[in-house]
């Protein structure tokens, strides 16, 4: 067991964790933050994406002890109280959500992108969610929603002209 201190969604948490516990297990099983999803536990689907010091990581591939002393942001930490983040609003508005299982990972990946590039290009959007699998939406609305949240207008090569 290791005692660690992690700042999760802005609040400090003191935890005793097993050395083989993943960050994903810590979030879901120790802290009850079940918004972060488990789709493969092998770093292949992106459903468990969280931000570690602002960088998107697959929480299933990070050990809980590695988060000691760091900042973690999960989907639960995107809204400001009852106020949804623009990304969340855009995902709702543009129907970028179907079953919703990929959504937390998509949102955290997109959030990291917009922190880095407030006006991302189409390629940057694509790259940001390349590791996030979605079986429902065909990604069209997800790309639309990220673009919408960034407030940038569609570029000429714009994918997803579905409507």
């Amino acid at each position: 067991m290791h005692t660690i201190t992690v700042t999760i969604n802005g609040a400090a948490e003191y935890l005793a964790v097993r050395s083989n516990m993943t960050l994903l297990q810590m979030l879901r099983e120790e802290l009850g933050l079940t918004g972060t999803k488990n789709g493969c536990e092998a770093g292949e689907c992106g459903a468990c994406t969280v931000l570690l010091d602002g960088e998107p990581v697959n929480a299933c591939m990070v050990l809980a002890v590695e988060s000691d002393g760091h900042q973690v942001i999960t989907v639960e930490g995107l809204a400001e109280g009852d106020e949804l983040a623009p990304l969340q609003e855009s995902f709702i508005e543009l129907n970028a959500v179907q079953c919703g299982f990929c959504t937390p990972g998509m949102l955290t990946s997109a959030h990291a992108l917009l922190q880095r590039h407030p006006k991302p290009t189409e390629d940057e959007i694509e790259e940001a969610v390349l590791g996030n699998l979605c079986r429902c939406t065909g990604y069209v609305r997800i790309v639309d929603a990220i673009r919408d949240a960034a407030g940038s207008s569609a570029s000429a090569s714009g994918k997803g002209g579905a409507r």
């Binding site: 999960t74 995902f91 959500v97 299982f101």
Partner: peptide, 15 residues
């Protein structure tokens, strides 16, 4: 169901 799903509040079996 969208609000639940963008906030991580939506509950799935593993939750």
């Amino acid at each position: 169901d969208a609000h639940d799903k963008v906030t991580g509040a939506a509950t799935y079996a593993d939750d």
